[in-house]
Design a protein around this nucleic acid. Structure first.
Lengths: 108, 108
DNA sequence: TATTATCATCGTAATATTGCAATATCATAT
DNA sequence: ATATGATATTGCAATATTACGATGATAATA
């Protein structure tokens, strides 16, 4: 198959999985790091920074954008991508909640 | 392709991606939740709990085990799967560090 | 020993992901 | 209006993931 049986899981479980999927590729981890530290919204050189082709970067960016992590706007001639601070923090919060909620009962 | 170009990313970026991959499927999120709350190491009924076949659960468990999240032992006739508390906390810590390290400079 | 219960592995099918070349789009500059 | 530069989209190939039936391995029990 390859398609996951979504209906059998809770909304919350799917939400955590969706969030994790964004971080589940090193290129996206790298892109997020790079975009985050850009102070001046000049984001056109992600391709040079990461060692992947422009279409591939664009594809990863779409995954990040679909997750709601990008605030985009235009500045001069370049399209600007900025990390959405609030959404990024929401990611952190949701994952943190998951870890806190999932209390491991010491057994073995 | 489908294979990711690992060499171009840092160890740390790959580590975050590896961790995220474990959580990147709702079934594994559900399995982790379920195993965590089991107090008495009776773990044979994950299959009944989650709505997936035994081989599929076993496959997901292998992903979780490969990530170092399982402490296994025997108890009576049943193989026991328990969440490794320390490793689970390490996951939390590493993700938390990533979020803290990735400080978003407010630009747009 | 034979049976049963439990979990792992194998084989296979369907789908998803990753990556890039080619091409399209679109804002800006000339 | 046309050319240029930057990003998005399309199409395709290779690989990974997800799922399950069939089968194998192993421990407890009859």
């Amino acid at each position: 198959m390859g398609a996951s049986k979504l209906s059998i899981h809770t909304e919350h479980q799917q939400q955590i999985a969706e969030i994790a999927k964004v971080l589940a590729h090193p290129a996206r981890v790298a892109i997020l790091e790079y975009i985050a530290k850009q102070k001046n919204c000049i984001c056109g050189d992600i391709v040079d920074e990461i060692g992947l082709s422009q279409p591939t970067i664009s594809q990863h960016l779409q995954v990040i954008r679909n997750a709601g992590l990008l605030k985009g706007t235009f500045e001069g001639k370049r399209l600007c991508y900025c990390l959405d601070h609030d959404r990024f923090q929401e990611f952190q919060q949701l994952l943190n909640d998951y870890f806190h909620q999932t209390v491991v009962s010491d057994c073995c």
